[in-house]
Amino acid sequence: MRLSKVLKSCKEFFYRKDGASGIEYAIAAAMVAAVLTTFMSPISDGLKTVFTTVQTSLTSTANAGKPAGGGTN
């Protein structure tokens, strides 16, 4: 008797239509993960270049106001 209820519940679970949205979300999440994995390296390389440029500019600007020879004012 219990086994037939379990089998009936499983059968109803597989034929339900409302569970399809969960599968669709899983597929969408997998696609987003694949795209991020593909483009992560070029994006990170571009960000490294931008931050290196900003760091170099800030360092050269900070050093421009210092007197030559390391003396203090």
Results as ranks from 00 to 15, higher is better:
Met1Tyr: 10
Met1Phe: 06
Met1Arg: 10
Met1Lys: 06
Met1Gln: 08
Arg2His: 12
Arg2Tyr: 07
Arg2Cys: 12
Arg2Pro: 04
Arg2Ala: 15
Arg2Ser: 12
Leu3Ala: 05
Ser4Lys: 06
Lys5Gln: 07
Lys5His: 04
Lys5Thr: 01
Lys5Glu: 04
Val6Met: 12
Leu7Val: 01
Leu7Asn: 03
Lys8Glu: 08
Lys8His: 04
Ser9Trp: 03
Ser9Glu: 12
Cys10Gln: 10
Cys10Ile: 13
Cys10Asp: 06
Cys10Thr: 13
Lys11Thr: 08
Glu12Pro: 00
Glu12Met: 05
Phe13Asp: 01
Phe13Tyr: 13
Phe13Gln: 05
Phe13Asn: 03
Phe13Thr: 01
Phe14Tyr: 09
Tyr15Gln: 12
Tyr15Val: 09
Arg16Phe: 01
Arg16Met: 07
Lys17His: 10
Asp18His: 09
Asp18Glu: 15
Gly19Leu: 10
Gly19Ile: 05
Ala20Cys: 05
Ala20Lys: 07
Ala20Tyr: 06
Ser21Glu: 12
Ser21Ile: 15
Gly22Ile: 05
Ile23Ala: 10
Ala26Lys: 03
Ala26Met: 11
Ile27Leu: 14
Ile27Gly: 03
Ala28Thr: 01
Ala28Gln: 10
Ala29Glu: 02
Ala29Phe: 00
Ala29Gly: 04
Ala30Glu: 00
Ala30Asp: 04
Met31Ile: 14
Met31Pro: 02
Val32Tyr: 07
Val32His: 07
Ala33Glu: 05
Ala33Met: 08
Ala34Tyr: 09
Ala34Leu: 11
Val35Asn: 04
Thr37Phe: 10
Thr37Gln: 08
Thr37Arg: 08
Thr38Ile: 05
Phe39Lys: 09
Phe39Ser: 02
Phe39Ile: 10
Met40Leu: 14
Met40Gln: 07
Ser41Val: 11
Ser41Pro: 03
Pro42Lys: 03
Ile43Glu: 01
Ser44Tyr: 12
Asp45Phe: 06
Asp45Thr: 11
Asp45Val: 11
Gly46Ser: 06
Gly46Tyr: 05
Leu47Cys: 05
Leu47Asp: 04
Thr49Asp: 07
Val50Ser: 02
Thr52Phe: 01
Thr52Gln: 09
Thr52Ile: 04
Thr52Leu: 03
Thr53Cys: 00
Thr53Asp: 01
Gln55Lys: 15
Thr56Val: 05
Thr56Ala: 09
Leu58Tyr: 01
Thr59Glu: 15
Thr59Leu: 09
Thr61Cys: 08
Thr61Pro: 02
Thr61Ala: 11
Thr61Glu: 08
Thr61Asp: 02
Ala62Leu: 09
Ala62Thr: 10
Ala62Asp: 04
Asn63Lys: 15
Gly65Met: 02
Pro67Asp: 06
Pro67Gly: 08
Ala68Lys: 04
Ala68Cys: 00
Ala68Val: 03
Gly70Ser: 08
Gly70Asn: 02
Thr72Pro: 05
